[in-house]
Design a protein around this nucleic acid. Sequence first.
DNA 1: GTGAAAGCGCTAACAA
DNA 2: TTGTTAGCGCTTTCAC
Lengths: 333, 333
Amino acid sequence: MELTPSRSVTLEQVARAAGVSPATASRVVTGVGPSSATARRRVEEAVAALGYVPHPVARSLARGLGHRLVVAVVGVQRSVLADPYVARVTAAAAEVADAHGLGAGLRWVPVGGAHGRVALEDLGRDRSVSAVVVVNHTQQLLESLPSALAGRTTAIGTGTGDVPGFDVDSPSGVEGLLRHLHSDGRREIVLATGPSWVAAARRPLQAHRAFMHQVGLPVRTVAGNFTAERGRAAVQRALDRWPDTDAVIALSDVAAFGVLAALAESGIAVPDDVAVAGFDDVPMAALAGPGLTTATHPVEAIAASAAECALEGAVAPTPLRIFPSEVVVRHSA
Amino acid sequence: MELTPSRSVTLEQVARAAGVSPATASRVVTGVGPSSATARRRVEEAVAALGYVPHPVARSLARGLGHRLVVAVVGVQRSVLADPYVARVTAAAAEVADAHGLGAGLRWVPVGGAHGRVALEDLGRDRSVSAVVVVNHTQQLLESLPSALAGRTTAIGTGTGDVPGFDVDSPSGVEGLLRHLHSDGRREIVLATGPSWVAAARRPLQAHRAFMHQVGLPVRTVAGNFTAERGRAAVQRALDRWPDTDAVIALSDVAAFGVLAALAESGIAVPDDVAVAGFDDVPMAALAGPGLTTATHPVEAIAASAAECALEGAVAPTPLRIFPSEVVVRHSA
DNA sequence: GTGAAAGCGCTAACAA
DNA sequence: TTGTTAGCGCTTTCAC
């Protein structure tokens, strides 16, 4: 039978019950600073007996460490905040924050040097902010990170010396997809890229280039972003430039759906005429039409790790932590 | 030219600059308690000049109000937290929380009387929690809300006397879909329901029943939930029981995709043989295959309002605030 | 209408 | 190793 802990027990009551000073009780509870074995035992007993739980607000105030993790999303418009991917990242961060007794805030950082820097500087000055996770950043923005944010900021995507990065292994995912297409006999493969300003969008591009060189095929890319609209546009441009295109890889499933829609409208058969592959393996990929071939992207795991690391103190032993991406073959390729 | 507000400005500095006491400055800033017009003016000027922003942590500690909003998601398994819908709700809440200088936590509440109540009681006792938004609740759970949470809890879906509810107008959305199907000549219409234990899933069911009675058609429903798997299963069951089925409405787009996939596998033509409609108008609805007919569901707007209201003090003038749902006709029906 | 003073619960110098 | 003493920044009685 558990007794319901009354969270209104204060450290002072614990100290009194243990026969020590509040300072000693604090040292024992936080595990910081010296304490004798006896003191430790007695305080721990008192904590258990009274059901003491530290008050996060008071702790934050005293330590001046803030009380929330902010997910800072770089984007052209404020509406990036409504993106499903951003939502998944935020939810994962909120779950981690909750476990730490904190909360997660979601905030837009306008793209473009000055504005973005100002937004990050605001974050650095905000005493209620414990840690920051940056999403969709440019390399430049990260490199000019306000010093106030150093040590408590992580990034999803590539990192820097100061800012640990957490990313999916998109090069290997893309290479897996290319290998699959290639072994299927596809030779005229077009890659619809991500937004060029996003730092993390460059790595899969390089992987594409490397693979194509290796197998001696032409490197064909069209500019995209992570939206379906652009996916549509991209495939049209691709077919205009290279009418013999027999495969398209989009760097997001959403864009791939745009590609599929455009192809369907043009009466082009998938995968017979043109194979299509996405990236992310969103839940819908398995459901939409005959099934989208894609590569997995463990968004929640990545975001949770980034949040955890930012909260724990983002000292970067490795500048980039990579999460594996697996090819999922369905019908479209 | 805006000056960058230094968030390290304290109320005391404002008071000094305004030539008043911290107490007076506090009264002006919070708008609580008496203050003279002059005092008000001078404090406001100082606030503007110094770029003062209240420190939420200190405020929370002094008021004992907590520093985060918790999104409490009721579900059978912890994995509900990874649901895309939950992610959208959480992101919207995090955005609102951020604007209030707070953060949002995400937490699972197990379904089933005792466990769920215990989880809510924990929330009520946690002094770091300012407000709660409950998602996917049962009516029962809401009715047994711990008194400590009253006045700072809102629900997405139906509410109670104590807990303001925020929901999409699913009855009208469903009726719109039914009207569309009916005018299209569909007569053997099956509704795949939401999870029976979710309170909000009942309202569209009633709307369905009412409409079918009104037009003199049989009321046919099969049990579903909001997943694609169940959508698949549901349509199979429906066709077994009523082979003449000529339309299926699923109460979520995701389930509708399951329905579409199952029909495609059975070689049943959509919309010629069977029309399919979903609910939510997720971004993918426009993209997947030939386009899913559905009704809109302003998830972010609903969640943001619920969060705002919980934070502002959830006194319920109306027990339920309704957001409109519009039919979007695409290809599947 | 205003100011002085006492907290909110905890942490961190500094002495002892 | 321990206790004492100040705060962290804000709110809120309670006299004036």
